[in-house]
């Protein structure tokens, strides 16, 4: 038996080699680089450099945008999925909504930025229609696509469908009998959601939030194509740093990348901790 086990691991060697070479070693290289002097010695100076006002503010902006788009994505996506699964909508709508969600969640990057420029940019369709038909000039009112809310609004285009795709199976997992049992015990619809459905869904909701957060935190293409480098979110600064060393300190780049891993890692750690607490009732 042990002899047999001794060779079985060989079957996953190609996969492990791939993961090591193209995922883990490169990441480790960055993490180690963040704590190294150009000469190869250990230092905390790079990480300290992260706390300069310029880099700090970019991290804060990135975290704000990611949290806002993840939170709104979760809320709206949940509303749509709940409407689709439990809201008494006709059954045939499900197929089209799911397929569309698959498309929209993958329609990220450069073309998404183009689409929003063409819609909500200064001469975009919706901007023009609002101005010409309703007399509302959203740009005069302070809206700007190249801003926090503009970027959040754009990110929602892939965040909401991603939420719909992930949460729909979880909603399907809510048994009809739970609702009926709650109802027959005298619970209102709201009481059922608060005491049964939401607690049951909580781990999935939390996991999706963490995923959506990481998803927008690491996104560059959309923001870059939308704003160029006017909006200094972390990934865009790192991108510029890698391309042309705009920070005049190559090792600050390592530190920024390390900071990104710390943020997404922390988001997932919080998720894992909350999940274990929320899942006491699970196997």
């Amino acid at each position: 038996m042990s002899q047999k086990f001794g060779w079985n691991w060989l079957g996953v060697v190609p996969f492990l080699a791939f993961a090591l070479l193209f995922l883990m070693l490169p990441t480790m290289n960055i993490v180690i680089g963040a704590f190294r002097t150009p000469g190869g010695g250990f230092t905390l100076a790079n990480v300290q450099g992260l706390f300069s006002p310029r880099i700090m503010s970019s991290f804060i902006l990135s975290i704000q945008i990611s949290a806002a788009s993840a939170l709104l994505g979760c809320l709206i996506g949940f509303a749509i999925a709940a409407a689709m699964v439990h809201g008494g909508l006709p059954k045939w709508l499900r197929g089209p909504i799911t397929t569309f969600s698959g498309v929209a969640s993958n329609f990220a990057g450069v073309p998404l930025a183009f689409a929003f420029i063409a819609t909500l940019g200064r001469v975009g369709l919706v901007t023009m229609l609002l101005r010409d038909w309703f007399g509302i000039n959203i740009y005069a009112m302070g809206f700007n696509l190249l801003s926090f809310w503009g970027l959040t609004l754009t990110y929602l285009f892939f965040q909401i469908p991603l939420m719909v795709l992930i949460i729909t199976p979880a909603l399907d997992g809510l048994k009809k009998e739970w609702r009926e049992a709650a109802e027959v015990l005298g619970a209102s619809g709201w009481q059922y959601w608060r005491m049964v459905a939401l607690p049951v869904l909580f781990p999935s909701l939390l996991g999706t939030f963490a995923l959506l957060f990481a998803n927008s935190f690491g996104a560059i293409a959309t923001a870059y194509a939308l704003t160029g480098s006017t909006l200094s979110i972390v990934p865009i600064m790192l991108y510029a740093q890698i391309r042309g060393d705009v920070l005049q300190d190559p090792h600050l780049g390592y530190a920024m990348a390390f900071g990104m891993i710390v943020v997404t890692g922390a988001a997932n750690l919080v998720y894992i901790i909350l999940r274990t607490r929320a899942e006491r009732w699970m196997r």
């Binding site: 009998e177 739970w178 049992a181 005298g186 619970a187 209102s188 005491m195 049964v196 607690p199 009732w281």
Partner: peptide, 30 residues
């Protein structure tokens, strides 16, 4: 939820996130 009847289902339909005591007390709590 206004009829005051008790019902038992084929699939038990216990709320998985609540303990046995919380399940039993559900109707009283609401």
């Amino acid at each position: 939820n206004q009829r005051n009847v008790g019902m038992v289902f084929q699939s038990y339909a216990l709320f998985p996130n609540l303990t046995v005591a919380q399940n039993v007390g559900f109707g009283l709590k609401v």
